[in-house]
Simulated scan of single mutants.
Amino acid sequence: MYIPRHFEIRDRDEILSFVETHAFGQLISTHQGRLYSTHIPFLLSDDKTTLLGHVAKNNPQHQDIENQQVMVTLEGPHDYISPSWYSVQGVPTWNYQAVHIYGQCKVSTDTNKIISIIETLTKKNEAKFETPWVAQYPASMLGAIVAIDISIDELQCKYKLSQNRSDLDRDQVIAQLDEAGSRGLATAMKASRH
């Protein structure tokens, strides 16, 4: 991805924290000579070297993804930025946060691995509920999916959060985003100042 210097994030811990927080993204590979994308939730392995996920066996992407270098894209809050929010002239733009991950992909039909991924994803996402749902998966359901492991070979991270604008312009953009209800992006912009 194109990353001008003032939008680039290099801190690995910051990037991996973003990956854990914004873990729904696109698994991009080639299938039969064409680009192919599947939108799935990902998990970061405990040692933070691998992305884990699963896809349906009926999804043709898994048929030729083994040992292929793939790309995963993840994004955070984003929104349109009007030049009318600036104190000095500007152009319309879009503020956002994005991570691209490149790595070698492995596919597994091992039932224990599939159960581990599904249970971990479920626990992570059910934790916010007062009475979390407990997973129980019949063998027929487990046989309909495959596990995906992607080694993290390269991380690219871009936070385009008006860092190229004055403090006054950034404050005005934050205020407008808050007013418009785009609070996640406003919060990200505030956090990027520290």
Rank of each mutant, 00 (worst) to 15 (best):
I3W: 12
I3E: 10
R5K: 09
F7H: 06
F7K: 03
E8Q: 09
I9T: 06
R10M: 08
R12P: 03
R12I: 14
D13E: 07
I15R: 02
L16K: 07
S17G: 13
S17W: 15
S17P: 09
F18T: 08
F18V: 09
V19E: 01
V19F: 01
E20Q: 15
A23L: 15
Q26T: 15
Q26Y: 02
L27P: 03
T30Y: 01
H31G: 12
H31V: 10
G33M: 07
R34L: 11
Y36T: 11
T38H: 04
H39C: 13
P41I: 05
F42Y: 10
S45E: 11
D46F: 03
D47P: 01
D47S: 02
K48P: 06
T49R: 05
H54M: 05
A56I: 04
A56W: 08
A56T: 04
K57G: 10
N58Q: 05
Q61S: 09
Q61R: 10
H62T: 11
H62Q: 09
D64M: 15
I65V: 14
N67R: 09
Q68C: 06
Q69M: 12
M71Y: 02
M71T: 11
M71R: 05
V72E: 00
L74N: 04
L74A: 06
E75A: 13
G76I: 03
P77M: 08
P77C: 10
P77D: 13
H78S: 10
H78L: 11
Y80H: 09
I81P: 00
I81K: 02
S84Y: 05
S84A: 13
W85A: 01
W85V: 13
Y86K: 03
S87V: 07
S87A: 09
S87F: 14
V88M: 04
G90D: 01
V91L: 06
P92W: 02
P92E: 03
N95R: 01
Q97F: 03
V99D: 00
G103Q: 00
K106A: 08
K113Q: 15
I114Y: 00
I115R: 09
E119I: 08
N125S: 14
A127C: 08
K128T: 03
E130W: 10
E130H: 13
P132L: 13
Q136H: 15
Y137T: 07
P138D: 11
A139I: 15
L142I: 13
L142A: 10
I145P: 01
A147D: 00
I148D: 01
D149I: 14
S151H: 05
S151R: 08
I152D: 00
I152F: 00
Y159E: 08
L161R: 01
Q163K: 09
D167S: 07
D167K: 10
D167P: 05
D167C: 08
L168H: 06
D169W: 11
R170Q: 03
Q172P: 02
V173C: 05
I174V: 12
Q176W: 15
L177N: 00
A180E: 12
R183S: 04
G184Y: 07
A186H: 04
M189K: 07
A191C: 08
S192M: 14
R193K: 14
